[in-house]
Amino acid sequence: MSEEKITPTASVGTSTQNSENGKEMGRRGFFKWLSLGWIAFAGATGGFFTVMIRFLFPNVLFEPPQTLKIGFPNDYATNTVDIRYKKSFNIWVVRDEESIFALSTVCTHLGCTPNWLRTEGKFKCPCHGSGFRMTGINFEGPAPRPLERYKVSLSNDGQILVDKTKSFKWEKGEWENSESFLVV
């Protein structure tokens, strides 16, 4: 019987041998390439995220005007809801017995746009059926709080000025605030 030793092919030749004859990289070479790789990776990701973050600040920002003149108080009849500015400015202008106010058209449940149903005298949301009275108070469906009101004031030329940067929430008692309605 021959004393042949069976060597697994994978272990033929050790790494030191190979690095000695320069065909494979040694320990130092490995670290050199490793650092280079990491630096390249960090550079690429860093650049990518820089560009991404830059992307979040657009050069031109389209912001619809936050204030709007909506005509004279006498343009609005008593006990009506004006839906003319619903599409362009997202408000309903409501005039009741003693005041005019601007209601936001965003349903306080999940943000759909309700419809004003004149015959029923209520705003009704088509998404989950919340209902709001003409005053904006919620009374049916899941909406947890009334519609928000925006700041209204009289401008110098006698027109009503609606300012959407300031809103008034009923549940915080802000509808008492004299800026939230216009006495007529």
Binding site: K87, T105, N115, P126, C127
Partner: peptide, 10 residues
């Protein structure tokens, strides 16, 4: 899509 008009029912 138009945020100001939600189809009824949505």
């Amino acid at each position: 899509a138009n945020p100001a008009s939600t189809p009824n029912p949505s």
